[in-house]
Amino acid sequence: MPETTDILNALVLFGNFVFMPALSYGSQLALGALGVTLLFGILRFANFAHGDTMAFGAMVAVLVTWWLQSLGVSLGPLPTALLALPVAILATSLLVLLFDKYVYRYYRKQKSPPVMLAIVSVGVMFMTNAIVRFIIGPDDQRFSDGQKFLVRARDFKEATGLNEGIAIKTSSVITIVVTVVVVVALFWFLNRSKTGKAMRAFSDNEDLALLSGVNPDRIVLITWLITAALATIAGVLYGLDKSFKPFTYFQMLLPIFAAAIVGGIGQPVGAILGGYIIAFSELAVTYAYKKFFRYLLPEGSEPDSLVQLLSTDYKFAVSFIILVVVLLVRPTGIVKGKVI
């Protein structure tokens, strides 16, 4: 039987390397998937430009942050990027509304099939991607400042006397807090406000919503605004947590889509669930448990390998496998979503 401190050490280790990172990554995915799923529910297509929309929003935030930093503006321990967020959301909203006006609207009026709109979104993806690369370049950019850690691993160890420590990054806490605030606000809006209900009604039964006097243009406009805000927030939080690189946002498309489908496409609750499921599986499967088991197993029986189910290079495989299993077993997702 392992000693209590060993169990605690193992748990702290797991918390530090799997639970905390998964919580913040899951929040970022959830916000991204919420955008995809809302757009899917209302405009009824899979938006391939979503990753690049996130990159665009994050880019604006990076630029504004740099500008604020050059002015000497700072939020103290918090990253300056939070101040840049409103500007970034505004800019992203403008971008998606322009694309809607000049690109998507035409196909909506034509009642084009969803797959056509998905292809159109590929064109939008190209253009957004080019804009981002043209303005800021394809390389890594750092823009986080303020205090890096809320709790340092060393302080934690000293305070508790354990061998392992939990380091709590400021960016993780901000991610989680912002996500909770955004999600609560979004759900309040969807479930309590008249416009939010109209959005849900439109998503549920478009013809009947029109018959009830819902103005489709207004619903679409609001959906784009929310999507832009969600994409920007997700993009900025991800950038603060890791770093800003345009291509990584494109690569987030897969886990985001997977999260939306796993949860049940068109279902906001599902998107959030899906985001955390994907993030937790990804980190749990790619974590090397060697040290973890060393605490728990009796001496002499420790594993000599890394005890890592999949190398981190295959983290995409995790979202993909979950996606495939869901498509096979329950194509409607966990919370029953739209399937034709």
């Binding site: 797959v115 690569q251 295959y314 495989a317 996606l323 034709i340």
Partner: peptide, 28 residues
């Protein structure tokens, strides 16, 4: 086999996934 017969855009998402994975396997 997995993704056809469902919504049209599920194939797109599944193929997007397989493309990432095939490349990851070949790289690693």
């Amino acid at each position: 086999k997995v993704s056809l017969g469902l919504r049209a855009d599920y194939l797109a998402i599944a193929t997007l996934g397989i493309s990432e994975i095939v490349i990851a396997i070949i790289k690693n």
